[in-house]
Design a protein around this nucleic acid. Structure first.
Lengths: 369, 369
DNA sequence: GTATGACTTGCAAACGTTTGCAAACATAGA
DNA sequence: TCTATGTTTGCAAACGTTTGCAAGTCATAC
């Protein structure tokens, strides 16, 4: 029952005690040093009309000498924009980082150019508690936000952003008045892979997919089947294997598929829903003595930076990550300006390297780059 | 019963014009709805001593019903902590993202747990203008900062952070009262590789390094030479090649080294300063018909996620990226609490896979995992 | 000489919050 | 009933900035 009072003295002292050794020079300090009013200083610093040129010069000079740095929080408080943009990343690391990496540098460059800063929020993929997004946005006064790749297409946050009217861009397909979206056409990527392999002469093609709860897994497979269907083929379910996008799962799946098809008609090609699984499959199968691409052609997806340096170099579906980034931030700036959010879809393309060739393996692939 | 109703319309209207459709409920709104004073609401919300339990309950209730979200900027203004941590990333994308990826998820988790948020700042590596760091810290009231991997060891920002007394952790070796550092022992990693290869029986070992202006390039090579020196060997400069950490440079360097040593004594092993270059070298050389590891053993560095799924799986120096992240953020929390900054050095270790074996290639490597 | 502007400057209120201080109230002891 | 004590509440100032308004200066035109 001790009524312990929290007596915290002047906050100055507290700051000093914590080691804050930095001079705290504000607009007032400048005003005082020059014996003028803070208002004038503010106006001068912000390049407002109505300050004598000479006064302005003196103020600028003093500001520089004193090492003045504006307090952005205070600026925000009086109603100016916060200049803060939220980057929402899914907490699951793999996905998050992948998208993040690609997005980061150009995003930064552009934001900085606008005098904006980016705040990171990491949101658990499972058990999202509604309102969490609004909380983040409101508490920091975010002007807009980017939902980084990795969130499921209909993550509640997207609906929340649209409902709240918070300018937002995400990597799905839902748009709203102030919500833009970028997506890569994963179906088309699947079709591309199917056409390539069919064109090379393959008829029995294995498929290693990702977790079916992920949209990209389903879409890539659906596209693949569609591509086959264009030639009147139905994909044999026995040739499909569910991986987890990891290299290990690719190795396991590759081996399983290979052994499974020994007795059945065999398999001459393998399409993997991402490059890491393709690498795993190649590694394992090559270790088992399978010759790539002579005995088995392999096609990946994503064109990961390492794909070109696999042995053999991996033929894969290129994702065009580079245009995605400026695009995303460009879209954000658009909605920030008040323009209507729009949907942008990027078309993937095949980059042929050495891991896919005609069955029977009579040398190098027909088209090489 | 103060009869004075403050007309707070001004800014509201502006916000609405900008499209802000979100209810702006502050501490005052709650107070008004309950006909009590804002001070009491503030105290209740912050769990301060001196509010009747029943009043507190009513306030909490109303806060929830109204969807109250505290304005963190205002909190910061009155002198509470900003709860903001700066993440400074070098603008050069490759390096930045690499470090960033590894650091991101655990960092987030821990910060969030502390109610802190992370702000990203991207700093050009060249032409750093002094004071830029201080500006960032002051303008947003950052409590501390993390200098992500990729900055040269003596980047001016580090000195600035130490001088300013801003709590900080970076990936170099300079410490200060409130500045901690994490580093991996790259020299030791080089030694490890040399010992492994020597132990396997290799005597003529090629080396593909990174740009010499990067500390890690120099250290890895220095360690490698030291390791060789332990056995009385001096590394032949003709066996060293300067790459750029890219897969393409690895391919080029590998081929150049291989051809160059044809006439000279030949080379039975190759140590690459990172995994991507190792992958590039293997890809090119294998394409040229060189059998790995029978004709040439290859050792990489970093244990990149793809390393285990190369063909053959890459023997490499493992970096222990995982412990680095919690460590960095742990160190930051330490200095944030006021403790003295300390230096932590992580020891690398070899992870043996299949790309390195005894020269002459009499089968699988001696130790396999 | 005064009126008319055009410029320049300062005052004070506002933004959303916290908190020292003092006032109001409640409870118990006398 | 009154004081002593303790609990609950409200007032107002403060944080660093912006900005509407009014007051000041000054030269020009009448």
């Amino acid at each position: 029952m001790t009524g312990e009072r929290t007596e915290q003295g002047g906050r100055r002292r507290e700051a000093r005690a914590a080691g804050e050794s930095v001079a705290e020079v504000g607009i007032k300090a400048i005003a005082e040093a020059l014996a003028i009013s803070p208002s004038t200083v503010s106006r001068a610093l912000n390049g407002k009309y109505g300050v004598r040129t000479e006064t302005r010069a003196r103020i600028m000079d003093m500001a520089k000498r004193l090492g003045y740095v504006p307090h952005l929080g205070a600026k925000q408080l009086v109603g100016k924009s916060s200049n803060l943009v939220g980057l929402f990343a899914p907490e699951s690391q793999r996905e998050a980082s992948l998208g993040f990496v690609a997005l980061f540098p150009p995003l930064q460059r552009q934001l900085i150019a606008q005098g904006k800063h980016a705040l990171i929020f990491s949101i658990p993929l499972a058990n999202y508690e509604p309102g969490r997004f609004a909380e983040c946005v409101l508490s920091r006064g975010l002007e807009g936000c980017i939902l980084l790749p990795g969130f499921p297409e209909q993550h509640p946050m997207i609906a929340e952003a649209i409902r709240l009217g918070v300018p937002c861009v995400h990597f799905g397909t839902a748009t709203g008045p102030r919500c833009a979206a970028v997506s890569s056409d994963n179906r088309e990527g699947g079709r591309l892979a199917a056409r390539l392999l069919y064109g090379l002469g393959h008829r029995r093609i294995g498929f290693i997919g990702g977790p079916p709860e992920l949209r990209i897994s389903r879409e890539r497979y659906a596209g693949f089947c569609e591509g086959l269907a264009e030639f009147g083929l139905r994909h044999d379910p026995a040739l499909a294997y569910e991986g987890s996008f990891s290299g290990a799962s690719g190795a396991e799946a590759g081996q399983a598929l290979w052994e499974r098809t020994r007795r059945a008609g065999g398999m001459t090609a393998l399409f993997c829903a991402n490059d890491l699984m393709a690498a795993g499959a190649i590694m394992r199968l090559a270790g088992l003595g399978v010759r790539i691409p002579e005995q088995l052609s392999v096609v990946g997806y994503d064109d990961d930076p390492f794909a070109a340096y696999l042995n053999p170099p991996l033929t894969t579906v290129h994702h065009d990550a580079e245009p995605i980034d400026p695009m995303a931030i460009g879209l954000l700036l658009e909605v920030l300006e008040g323009r209507e959010g729009r949907q942008v879809t990027l078309l993937p393309r095949i980059v042929e390297r050495a891991s896919a060739a005609a069955p029977g393996g009579t040398g190098p692939p027909p088209i090489s780059s």
